[in-house]
Design a protein around this nucleic acid. Structure first.
Lengths: 132, 132
DNA sequence: TCAATAATAGTAATCGTAATCATTAAGGAA
DNA sequence: TTCCTTAATGATTACGATTACTATTATTGA
């Protein structure tokens, strides 16, 4: 036997689906309401494993804790620099464009590209209206 | 008076130009050979200020210390997942393609894009030959 | 030359995350 | 069902990168 299913894992997966790009601490707080004895280490351990086996996507942004995204489709993220919100780009990015970028990078750097990590920083719609 | 020039700042700038995408610790080690009394805190403080005023670019990658790039032109980075090396894409990426991606993201998410942070992960040329 | 204060060196503190380890509990076999 | 192996947990400690603090030093305009 390799991987065991536990109540904690299930609760973490559920929390990921309810919350919006949560941090490990946010997952912990959420799960704690249903399972008060859960350890923060357990949350970190499982989130790390999930991101290793591809169950979730780990989002690392400068100067803030990692966020986790249960959307496993290839997609990228828009980041609001004012409120910090992370928005999925879903599959809205034309794959041909990205493939073209990859080829350009490969030609320029000699690196064989296997994975793209794109962040589009700016101001989200909510913050735009809030500012005006 | 606002900003004073110091020997430490000059040495840090010099180190950035000699080293290849160094971390703060690498800059510290390098500068220490010429100015053994310099403090790691001074290196961090100045690198942070440089990246704030646009003198250098700060590169944040998951699970490893930040790197600093004196290349202030708009450019992106290729990252070798085997040896960790970071390679500038310089201005080789077609600006029109990126503008097109930005517009797509803006339409899909409502976020007004002001800055792109792209990482192209893969295996660099050196590691490819090393593997074969 | 001097005075005001920005910058430094040295060090302690912070914070997100990983590691450790004794205990608990999946889950396959008998 | 019961038992056994061992994966997973909870609790805690450790760690590494970075920032904050503070007394001292040194830059620079007057």
């Amino acid at each position: 036997m390799r991987k065991r299913s536990t109540a904690q894992k299930n609760l973490i997966i559920q929390a990921l689906q309810v919350l919006d790009h949560p941090t490990a601490a946010e997952v912990y707080e959420s799960v704690r309401q249903l399972a008060p004895q859960i350890s923060l280490g357990t949350v970190y351990r499982n989130l790390s494993q999930f991101s290793e086996d591809g169950t979730v996507l780990r989002i690392s942004l400068r100067d803030e804790p990692d966020r986790f995204d249960p959307n496993t489709h290839a997609h990228h993220h828009a980041v609001c620099d004012e409120c910090g919100r992370v928005i999925d780009t879903d599959n809205s990015l034309p794959a041909e464009l990205i493939a073209q970028l990859d080829r350009t990078v490969e030609a320029a750097t000699g690196l064989k590209v296997s994975r793209n990590v794109f962040f589009f920083h700016g101001v989200c719609g909510d913050c735009q209206t809030k500012n005006s």
